[in-house]
Design a binder for these strands. Structure first.
Lengths: 354, 354
DNA sequence: GTGAAAGCGCTAACAG
DNA sequence: CTGTTAGCGCTTTCAC
């Protein structure tokens, strides 16, 4: 009967009352012990603790939340947890939250605006103590309004929202600008950029940074090499194949690590090109397989721990002082140098000039 | 002041009382409308609904849970959400739960036994209506005891636990046996199996199924080709390299898709071998990049939707009838045929014989 | 069909 | 330092 885990064997769980009775103290005292209040006699504390584990008592978190108006829970909304980069950030945040007594409540929005609005409502209904969100729709007025009006401590992760909120932003732009500079210094001029078509901040910033890299060197931006491909399961192969086949093929390719990188590498090898002798490759994002590939692929890497640390500290600070002005943390991706990135093929000539 | 999302603008949120007052009805009526009870006059219903959205009222989920003893929340425990296979299952479960009014509360255990035990306690404290779990420690007596005694509807995903619980099991064994049969039919005899060292059910079953495949054909199992490598970031390259270098190299390799596959492919190409002409490759699990690779890699694929459907239906059924005997659902991975898997190199000779 | 009243299990505020 | 009391916001009896 009870074996299948009905909520409790028969009538129902042990409450703080039972503990109080067994320990021969009042409700209040039990509560104090449970919450580690300082003003409790060692004697009382011990008796309560004994009663607790004799009864196998577990505090009812729901009742506690209702009364204390704090659920020790943080809502998290990502667009797509199947993206390992988000999954890693989630894990890192989870660990940090846990260490300070919180727990995350995760939801995927799949970038559907209605769902994002709805989820914020759910977080509110469920009395989250705060939320950490990365909505997919930066431009949707409903989402913007919902984010703006959400009456909860809120941290926004890597999105440009016109709201007064704490946020943690990844410096995709500067990272790409520096990367382009580095490639230029290696003699590359024809640099391709492979991205998804998304209009979200990370993509926008990267394109801007890419251009800025050329402009910083007073070089013309190779607009024809900015390949923006339909988001998921894209034909990156064809796009890269096309530019390689063209009159002025790239000597370097910078590609989004997710999904597209495989296509890029295949397109390259299908042309018989060798990395990095004939062409350099850099991945944006650091999926596992860049390290399995031979040669290993250089990447622009975001440390999930760093991100998590920023997100959680912003949130905890906000919970602590709700009235403080919004905080902003910028984190810079790091360039991880690996064999795939080297001097440009024709650079002997170029170097001669310089 | 309120702009930073204190829990509410000033004194605090609108409760059911306010709605009742504005609508000019009783608390009970509001509750009935909110919960879609049948016995409400259209008139009352309308007035309540008006009041609700005039006030922007949102039911307090915590209070509701406390009173109704149902949180509409399902605890989920996975070992590692950074594994995209788990992430996909999570998403699929999330969608299904949502469609029936539930929401998942996800936690990673990282296969740490203490943490697994603790998390089950958390699920209980937080009044989950049920849990879906994949603990990392099938053999740890503390975890077993915790799973056995958890007083909640529980579904176990792809683990062999000696407990009377609902479970959904993936048929790794039969799938591998069939795969081996298929390879044998293609003329392969020297088939390598690349796995992690884990002792968890999926790995155990695969090894057993691998052996069964040979035994079904009365062939000797190539024990020397069963490569069990240290779990994460493994030197799969070296292991595969070694067998390829050996006196009787494999003509086919079956490899875990996660992490190791990249190494396997690299080892193969470092020997100048062509897929599938010189060697066939099959991935266990269907990571994105098997489709980007040229040639595309055949895989043994588990449909996350199928898994989610099974898990959720088991759980809902259990919640509905707590006393029913444990259910068990078996799901079979499907073989996805792709170019990487072909006839064995020496098979012209073999075929001549047959 | 609707209102009134009684708690869910806990914490917080207040006496003592 | 400890006990008592009053709710948190809601659902759920139970009368009407």
């Amino acid at each position: 009967m009870a074996r299948q885990g009905k909520k409790q064997s028969s009538q129902n769980s042990i409450s703080i009352r039972d503990v109080a009775r067994l320990a021969g103290v009042s409700l209040g005292s039990v509560s104090r012990v449970l919450n580690g209040a300082s003003n409790v006699t060692p004697d009382v504390r011990q008796r309560v603790e004994q009663a607790v584990d004799r009864l196998g008592y577990r505090p009812n978190h729901v009742a506690r939340s209702l009364r204390s108006r704090t659920s020790k829970t943080v809502g998290m909304m990502f667009t797509d947890l199947a993206n390992p980069l988000y999954a890693r950030v989630f894990q890192a945040v989870e660990n940090r939250l846990r260490s300070v007594g919180y727990m995350p409540l995760l939801a995927n929005s799949l970038s559907v605006a209605e769902r994002e609005v709805e989820l914020l409502g759910v977080f509110q209904s469920r009395a989250m103590d705060g939320v950490i969100i990365t909505p997919g729709n930066e431009r949707d007025p409903r989402v913007i309004a919902a984010v703006r009006e959400l009456p909860l401590p809120t941290v926004i992760y890597d999105r440009d929202f016109d709201v007064e909120r704490d946020c943690l932003l990844v410096e995709h732009g500067p990272a790409l600008r520096d990367l382009v500079s580095r490639l230029i210094a290696l003699g590359h001029r024809r640099i391709a950029l492979v991205l998804s078509q998304s209009e979200a901040r990370p993509i926008r910033c990267r394109v801007d940074g890419f251009r800025a890299g050329f402009e910083a060197h007073r070089l013309k931006v190779p607009e024809d090499l900015i390949l923006r491909l339909p988001s998921v399961m894209s034909p990156a192969f064809d796009a890269v194949d096309a530019v390689l086949r063209g009159p002025r093929p790239p000597t370097a390719v910078v590609s989004l690590g997710t999904n597209m990188l495989g296509d890029v590498l295949n397109a390259i090898s299908s042309h018989g090109l060798r990395i990095p002798r004939d062409i350099s490759v850099v991945s944006i994002g650091d999926p596992d397989f860049v390290r399995s590939h031979r040669p290993m692929i250089a990447t622009l890497r975001m440390d999930p721990e760093l991100v998590a640390e920023g997100l959680v500290s912003l949130l905890l600070e906000r919970i602590r002082s709700p009235g403080a002005p919004p905080g902003r943390i910028l984190v810079m991706p790091e360039f991880v140098e690996r064999e795939s990135c080297a001097i440009a093929p024709t650079s002997t000539r170029k170097r001669g000039k310089a």
